[in-house]
Every structure is written in structure tokens, then in C-alpha cells.
């Protein structure tokens, strides 16, 4: 029984010792092995490792890409106008010994690096104008006048100035981090948001509204203009078409009459006297009717036989 207890104690003790001597470094971690507070070794590769039990302690650091979310800060640009810029950075602990010495913990790193990112960004932003920070460029023609689209809105071209600014900030932060020997590598700095300060927003809205009102007015005026134009042209075209038709009509009629006159004249000219005689007879037939009263002289040739049946010429 006594030996059993001894064995149990030995087993438990050896378990405790083993537990204290063995440690696992995960793929996402790197560790420092400390002996009495002094860094004795580092492990950056994953695996199962052995250390001196009880006297060696380990501190774990993350090996993954870590995140710094800088708070939104109002930053003045070249024209001293504020933009609220919300940025973030990514880094990785590459030298845990230095990291522990300088920044100590991820929390420490977050506030320290956040400050560095913000101040570097502030320096760079102060050298650029609004359009460069937002990443566009108003288009101008060869005379320097702003180019506009069909709706009278200024045209813009996208430019990579924001990426340039961020590259400069990244280089700047890298530089600082190296000089200070933080034991980290900065991977990325990005502007998450760049917004107008709340105090400016109403005036932006006012401008947007005015701009839209101008476009709306322009559209309506254009509608009016086009309407009048199209109708005027249509009316003109109609009038021209009808006038041309009239012209053609009169020409045709004239030609017809001329031709008729010529044909008749040619025929009638053979004996103008006979024509005159015959045509007059026709005319009498045509214009004398029941309502007419004809006063005839009794000695008209028509009546030469009326009173004198024996008369002769």
C-alpha cells in the first residue's frame, strides 16, 4: 500500500515536471524562453520543445499579421482644410526580443504604432491638396478651362495619389520603426475612410444641392429649347414643302395653259375670222338664257326674210 502511494506520487510528480518541461509553439506563435527574467532563447518555428522545468518560463508572442486601428483624426491638408482620416496599419513581430524590450505587449504596440502612423500620415497629408488625398484630378482642356460633360458637370480623372501618399507613409513608418528598433515589420498602411468633418458636411450638401438644381434647370431649359427648335424646324419644313408644291403646281398649270393656248392658237390661226364667227355663236348659245331679253332690229340680217320674203342680198 505504501509503495502504491509512493508510485502514485512519483507518477504525479513526473507528470507535473513533464508538463512544465514540455511546451508547444503553435504555427501562429513565437515564444521567448526566460530564465530568471533573462531571455535565454527564442522559438519562432512551431513544434514541441523542452525547457528546464520550473526555472524557465515562456512568453508567447503572435507571429501572425497584427492590426492597428488608428482612431479617426482630423488632419489639415495643404489648403488647411480638415479631412477626418481613419487609417489602419498591419504589422508583424519579427524580433520578439526587441519587441519585448521596446513595446512590450501588443497593447503597447497598438498605441505606440498608432501614434506613429497617425503623425506620419498627418505630415504627408499636410503636403497634399484635397483632390490628391481623395484620388482624383479635375480635367482641364488645353486652355486650362475645366472640362465638362454633356450635363455641364466638371469631369475628373482618377489618379493614384492616395496610393502614393500611403506608400510614403508606409516608408516613413518603416523608417521610424527601424530607427527605434521595435522588432516589427510594418506590412501595410491604409486610409480606411477620409471624410469631411461634420461641421463642413452641411455646406457640402448645400453645394451639391445647388449643383443639382443647376443641372435640373438646365435640363428643363434644354427641353424647352429642343421642343421649340424641333417644332420650328418642322413648321418650316411643312411650309417649304407646301410652298414648293404650290410652285410646282403653278408651273404645271402655267405650262398646261401655255400648251393649250399654243395648240388652239395654232389651229385657230388657220382662219381667225371663222374662229371668231364660230366662237361668237357658241358664246351666244352659252350666255343667252330664259332670263335674258334680246332687243333685235327688225332689219337685222336675221330677219331679212321676215318682212320681205323675196329679198335677196
Amino acid at each position: 500500500m505504501k509503495s502504491l502511494i509512493i508510485i502514485a506520487i512519483i507518477i504525479i510528480a513526473s507528470l507535473i515536471v513533464t508538463r512544465s518541461a514540455l511546451y508547444i509553439v503553435d504555427v501562429t506563435e513565437q515564444v521567448l524562453i526566460l530564465r530568471f527574467g533573462e531571455v535565454r532563447d527564442t522559438r519562432t518555428n512551431p513544434g514541441l520543445y523542452l525547457k528546464a522545468p520550473f526555472i524557465d518560463t515562456i512568453i508567447t508572442f503572435d507571429k501572425r499579421i497584427l492590426r492597428i486601428d488608428a482612431p479617426p483624426v482630423a488632419m489639415p491638408d495643404k489648403e488647411k482644410q480638415n479631412l477626418v482620416i481613419d487609417s489602419y496599419a498591419r504589422y508583424r513581430i519579427v524580433d520578439p526580443v526587441q519587441f519585448r524590450k521596446t513595446l512590450q505587449t501588443e497593447t503597447g504596440a497598438r498605441s505606440r504604432l498608432g501614434d506613429i502612423v497617425t503623425s506620419t500620415l498627418r505630415d504627408r497629408v499636410a503636403l497634399r491638396d484635397r483632390f490628391e488625398i481623395i484620388g482624383s484630378e479635375p480635367l482641364v482642356d488645353e486652355f486650362g478651362n475645366p472640362e465638362e460633360d454633356s450635363e455641364g458637370l466638371p469631369l475628373f480623372a482618377g489618379v493614384e495619389t492616395r496610393s502614393d501618399i500611403l506608400q510614403e507613409v508606409l516608408d516613413g513608418v518603416k523608417n521610424t520603426v527601424e530607427t527605434q528598433n521595435f522588432g516589427i515589420a510594418i506590412i501595410d498602411v491604409r486610409i480606411k475612410r477620409a471624410d469631411f468633418p461634420d461641421s463642413v458636411t452641411p455646406s457640402i450638401y448645400t453645394r451639391m444641392r445647388a449643383e443639382r438644381n443647376r443641372i435640373a434647370t438646365k435640363f428643363r431649359a434644354e427641353g424647352e429649347e429642343e421642343d421649340l427648335k424641333i417644332r420650328a424646324v418642322a413648321n418650316r419644313n411643312r411650309d417649304v414643302i407646301l410652298a414648293n408644291a404650290d410652285q410646282a403646281s403653278n408651273q404645271l398649270r402655267g405650262a398646261g395653259e401655255a400648251e393649250a393656248i399654243r395648240i388652239l392658237a395654232d389651229a385657230l390661226n388657220q382662219d381667225p375670222d371663222f374662229f371668231s364667227f364660230r366662237r361668237s355663236l357658241e358664246a351666244y348659245q352659252a350666255f343667252l338664257g330664259q332670263q335674258d331679253t334680246v332687243v333685235l332690229s327688225a332689219d337685222a340680217p336675221l330677219f331679212q326674210y321676215l318682212t320681205n320674203p323675196t329679198a335677196s342680198k
Binding site: Y284, G289, Q290, T293, V294, V295, L296, S297, A298
Partner: peptide, 20 residues
Amino acid sequence: LYLEAMEEVLPDVNKIILSP
């Protein structure tokens, strides 16, 4: 022709024949 025309015309109209 003259007489035929007169024949046509004169029956329908009122006629006043005056002595010369």
C-alpha cells in the same frame, strides 16, 4: 351655222324686235 345657232339661242330668250 349662224342660223342654227340662232335657232338654239332665240327660243329660250325674251325677244324684243324693234323696227329700224
